[in-house]
Design a protein around this nucleic acid. Structure first.
Lengths: 240, 240, 240, 240
DNA sequence: AATGAATGAGCCTTCATTCAT
DNA sequence: GATGAATGAAGGCTCATTCAT
C-alpha cells in the first residue's frame, strides 16, 4: 500500500494547515474583508469543523443548519461565531482542514515507489479508494461540485490545492510508464481526466444517487476500470 | 397533481428550451416594463421551465428564488403557481421537459443503426455531446447530483426516467459488439459505469469547476476517452 | 304545524328581498361606498349565493375560496365579480337571501294561531327545528357568530332583520300565555333569551362540535328543553 | 412537540393572563422603541399567549396575524417560534393555559361543598360567570365554535379537556339533587345540555353580537336562567 | 470564553381581484 | 355577458446572525 493517511487524523479534524502561521497570510483570510474580531486561531476547535463536515456532506451547505452543527459539536450556536465569521467561513475551513492535509502526506510517501508502472497505477487507484473514496471524506468532492457555483472562490481553492496536486501524482505515474514503454504514447492530461472520472463518479454515486435501486460494488467497479485502463494504455496497433 | 403541462407539449420530443430563437420574441414582451396580461397559456410552461433551468443550473435548487424565475420569465410570481404546484414540481418539470424527450428521440434513431459496433459507440458518445453534454441541458445532471440528498424522490425519478434508459442504449451497443466479436467479453453493467463516468465528469467540469483556470477541450477529451475505450474493449490476450 | 316555509324556496336561493326595489335603497348598498359598475341586480344568479352558502357554512368565510364557490356554481371565477363587488358583498348577499325570507313568511302564517299558549310554544320550537335548525340553513347562525367580529355591520344587519323579528314571535307567545294565566309573570325579554339559547346551542353543536364523540339527539334534546320550560313557566309558589 | 412551556407554569393553576397588573410593567418595556433583548424566558410564554388570546378572541384564528401577536407582546415574530412550533400550537396553548387550570381549581373547590343542591347549582353557575363567563376567557368558547370546522383536532382537544370536565361538575350536582329528592328525575345528560346552553349564549352574545344595540344584563339573565331552572327541576305533578 | 434568547430579513405559497379577449 | 390567465400583496415559517449576560 502506498498512501499512508492515518484516517483518525482526518476525522478528528486536527488541522495540519492552520497551526502557527501568522493569521493574515493564511488562506482563511480570503474568507472576507472584515477581520475586526480577534479569534484564537490556534485553538480553533476542530470539533466544530468535524461536525460541520459531517452535516455538509450529508445535507449540503444550504440545508445544513448551524443549530445542528452546534448541537453535534456539543456547543452553543453562539460559540460558532467565536471561531468563524460566518457560515461561509466555516464551510471554507471545513474544506481546507478536511482534504488538503491528505495530499501533502501522500506526496511525501509516494515519492519512493519502485516497481512497474502498472503496479503504481494500481496502488494509486486502490489506495485512493481505501483512504478517501471509501471514507466519509469522499463527500467533499460532491460538496464542492454542488456548491461551487455559489462559492467560486472555494472551487478555485479546491482546484489549486487538491485537483492540481492530485493530477500531478497521476501524471508522474503515466509519464513513467510511457518512458519505460509500458504505456503507449498519449496526451497525459486528457488521459488523467479519463482516469479520474470514474473515481469521481464512484463518490457521486455513493453520495448522490445512492437512493436509486441500483448498487455499485466498488471493488468490482474499480477492478473493471483498472482492467479497461491497462488494456487501453497498452502499446498496440491502433484500431482504426 | 404535480405537473399541469398540456401533455402534447411534452410528447413532441423536441426541446423547446434550446431553439435558436431568443425565448421571448413577441413585441409585447420586449416593451421593457411589465407587460400586460398576455393570453398564451400554451407557450407559458416552456418559458417558465426554460427560465427555471437557467437559474437552477446556475445557483442550485435551494438558492434559486421563485421571484427570480418569474422575473426571468417575465411574469409575476403567482403565475408560476398556475402551472406548477410547487417549487419542487417545477424542478421536476424542468427535468422532464429538458431530458426525457431527447432520450426518446435517441432511442428511435439508434434503433435503425447499421454498421460496426464501434461506429455505434462513437455515434452514441458524440451524439450525447452534441445534444446534451455540449448544451445548457448538461447542467441537469449536475443539478441532480447536487440536490439528490435533499430531494431523493427527484433522484429516483431521474434514475428511472433518464439513467436507466441511457444505460440501456449503451448496453445494447456493448452486447452487440460482444456478440459480433468486436468487443471482448466483460460485465456490461460495470463497463457502462466506466463509459458513462467521463461524460459525467465533463459536465461537472463545465458546470462546477469552470471557474478554475484549466480548460478542457471537450472534443479532445471525448476523443481520448473513445480511443482508450475502443482499445480497452478490443479482444486481446489479457495483460496479467 | 304552524310555520310554512316551502323548504325548496329557501335552498334555491330565490330572493324574496331583492326583487324590484331601486338599487340604492336596498341593504346591499351598504356593502361599500363604491358603486361604479352597473350590475343586473334583478338577474343576480341565486346559484352563486346558493353555492356560497354551502361553502361558507361548511368551511367558514375566510377558508372558503372563491374558486370553489365558482366551481360549485359552475361558472368562472370572474363571473362572481359581475354580480358581487367583493367576497364580503357575496357574504352579505348570502345571509340576506338565506334567512330573511323565512321570517317574513313565518310572521304572516303565525298570526292566525288559535289554541293554548303551551301548544303555541311547542309549535314554535319544533317548527323551528323542522324548517331551520334541522336543515342546512342552521349553519347561518354559526356563520354569523364566527364572523361577526370581522363583519360587525353584518352582525347588526342580522340582529335587526332576524333576531329582532324572531324574538318578537316568542314574545307574543309568552305574553299571550302570561295574559291568559297559563304562564307565571316574568320578564319576557330575559325569558326569551333563555328559550332561544338551547336552540342556538343545538345548531352550534351540529356545526361546530360535531367532531366530538358525543352525539346529541335533537328530538330528545328539544323535548327536554320544552319540558323544563313548561315546568318553569308554570305558575306556582316561588321556590325561594 | 407542539408546546414548549416550562411545565411548572402550566400547573400553578392560576391564570397569568388576567392579573390586575398591566401585562408589561418593566420600565424597559415602556421605553417605547423596540426594547433590547430581555432575558426572561420564563415569563415569555404567558405574555405570548396573553397577547394571542386577545387577538384570537377579537379577530378569530385565521384573521390573526402572528406579526400582530408578536407586536402586541412586544417581541419579534421569530420569538414566537422559540416557544411554539406553529400558529396552531400557539392556539392550543392559549386554550390550555387559559381554561384548564380553572377547571382544576373548580373541581377542588366543589368537592368540599356542603349544603343544598340548589345552592350547589347556584354556586356553579355564578362561579362560572365570575371566573370565566365574565372575563376575557369567555372568548375561548366562541373561538372554538368559530374555528372547529377548520381545526377539528382542536375542537376534540377542547371537548376532552374542557367540555367533558365541565359537564362532570354539573352532572354530580344534578345527581346529588335527584338522589336527595330536591330535583325530579330526568336524564342528566340532556339536562346538562339545557343548563349549559344559556351560558354559551351569554358568551356568544358578549363576543359576537355585542355590536347590536341590545344589551344583556348578565346578572339578570343568569338569575332568570337559574330561576327557570330551579322551577323546572323541582319535583311536581307533570304538566301533560 | 461561552451562552442562548432574540432578531428580522427573506422565501414559498395562497388567493382575492383585475382585465384583455 | 363570460372567461380565465395574470397579478401582487400578504402571511406563516426558517435560520443566519447578534449581543447582553
Amino acid at each position: 500500500m502506498t498512501w499512508r493517511f492515518p484516517p483518525d487524523i482526518l476525522l478528528t479534524g486536527q488541522s495540519l494547515l492552520f497551526s502557527d502561521e501568522p493569521p493574515v497570510t493564511s488562506p482563511v483570510a480570503l474568507a472576507g474583508t472584515r477581520t475586526p474580531r480577534r479569534r484564537r486561531k490556534d485553538a480553533r476547535p476542530s470539533e466544530l469543523t468535524a461536525a460541520a463536515l459531517e452535516l455538509f456532506v450529508d445535507k449540503g451547505f444550504t440545508a445544513t443548519r448551524l443549530d445542528d452543527v452546534a448541537a453535534r459539536a456539543g456547543v452553543s450556536k453562539g460559540t460558532l461565531y467565536l471561531y468563524f465569521d460566518s457560515k461561509e467561513a466555516l464551510f471554507k475551513a471545513v474544506i481546507e482542514e478536511g482534504i488538503v492535509p491528505l495530499l501533502a502526506t501522500a506526496e511525501l510517501q509516494l515519492a519512493g515507489h519502485s516497481g512497474s508502472s502498472v503496479d503504481l497505477l494500481r496502488k494509486l487507484l486502490f489506495g485512493w479508494w481505501e483512504h478517501i473514496g471509501g471514507t466519509r471524506l469522499a463527500g467533499v468532492p460532491k460538496l464542492i461540485i454542488s456548491e461551487s457555483r455559489n462559492f467560486p472562490e472555494l472551487a478555485q481553492y479546491y482546484h489549486d490545492k487538491v485537483i492540481v496536486r492530485g493530477r500531478a501524482l497521476l501524471r508522474s505515474a503515466l509519464q513513467r510508464g510511457i518512458a519505460s514503454g509500458e504505456f503507449r504514447k498519449l496526451d497525459p492530461e486528457t488521459a488523467i481526466d479519463v482516469i479520474i472520472a470514474p473515481l469521481l463518479m464512484l463518490v457521486i454515486w455513493r453520495f448522490s444517487l445512492c437512493f436509486c435501486g441500483r448498487e455499485i460494488d466498488p471493488e468490482t467497479y474499480l477492478g473493471t476500470h483498472f482492467d479497461l485502463l491497462v488494456h487501453g494504455l497498452r502499446p498496440q496497433k491502433g484500431i482504426r
